[in-house]
């Protein structure tokens, strides 16, 4: 590998840009493929990016290995509530870079969330700053329309691979009505997992966190759940 190419690869990573390294296995010739740059192997690169799995492509010139460098997984949790105290460390352990968003400073404290990044901003501002991408999961936990709704609207306007929102069926139905009034039709709001989490009979905050983490993992790995 050429030093300049490695430098570019490291720069792409630190800027959280998705990049694919294409290596011609017989000659060692390499190039970087960025989404949308019109590379001849763009379609295969896209498949590799979406599945987050490298692949080898047969070309007329020989086999080309496509290694994927996706940005890190992120989870944005809206609501510094009790369930968040279990979900945040669980997501961090699973490999997610976690951010808690809650403008209520009594909730979002370092004492309640040691080692977790906290943004005491309104969810719409926070999400505009965090720019969720196809490697981001967004979970709203406040039950409060003032906080959850702007977060969900921003989430639905992003490429987030998972959107989940805590609340009973009744709460969720009202939430959907509000989103429809705001112009988000069923085709868009169907991306929201609500009530949030897999149905495993979870009761305690930690169990609910497990059910959410299971559903996020299923979404990441391409299983409907």
């Amino acid at each position: 590998m050429k030093t300049d190419l490695l430098k570019q690869l490291l720069a792409d990573r630190s800027a959280q840009r998705t990049v694919v390294l294409a290596t011609h296995l017989a000659t060692g010739d390499q190039r970087l493929i960025h989404p949308g740059d019109g590379d001849p192997l763009a379609d295969d690169a896209t498949l590799a990016i979406q599945s987050d799995k490298p692949r080898t492509v047969e070309t007329a010139d020989g086999d080309v290995f496509l290694n994927v460098f996706n940005p890190p997984l992120r989870m944005i949790i809206v609501g510094a509530v009790h369930i968040a105290q279990a979900l945040a460390p669980m997501a961090a352990m699973t490999g997610y870079d976690v951010t808690i968003v809650d403008p209520r400073q009594a909730w979002a404290t370092p004492e309640r969330f040691p080692e977790i990044r906290i943004l005491d901003a309104w969810p719409d501002e926070a999400l505009a700053a965090l720019k969720p991408d196809h490697r981001t999961a967004i979970v709203t936990l406040t039950h409060d329309p003032k906080l959850d709704d702007p977060a969900l609207q921003a989430a639905l306007s992003s490429d987030a691979f998972y959107i989940g929102s805590l609340g009973s069926r009744g709460t969720h139905a009202k939430r959907i009505q509000r989103l429809e009034s705001a112009g988000f039709d069923a085709e868009r709001h169907c991306r929201i997992n609500g009530p949030v989490g897999l149905n495993i009979g979870a009761k305690s905050p930690a169990e609910i966190a497990v059910s959410i983490m299971g559903q996020v993992t299923a979404a990441l790995r391409g299983l409907a759940a």
Binding site: M1, K2, T3, L6, T23, L25, G28, F65
Partner: peptide
């Protein structure tokens, strides 16, 4: 299968 290369 492992591809081994030098960093140039």
């Amino acid at each position: 299968s492992v591809f081994v290369e030098r960093l140039d």
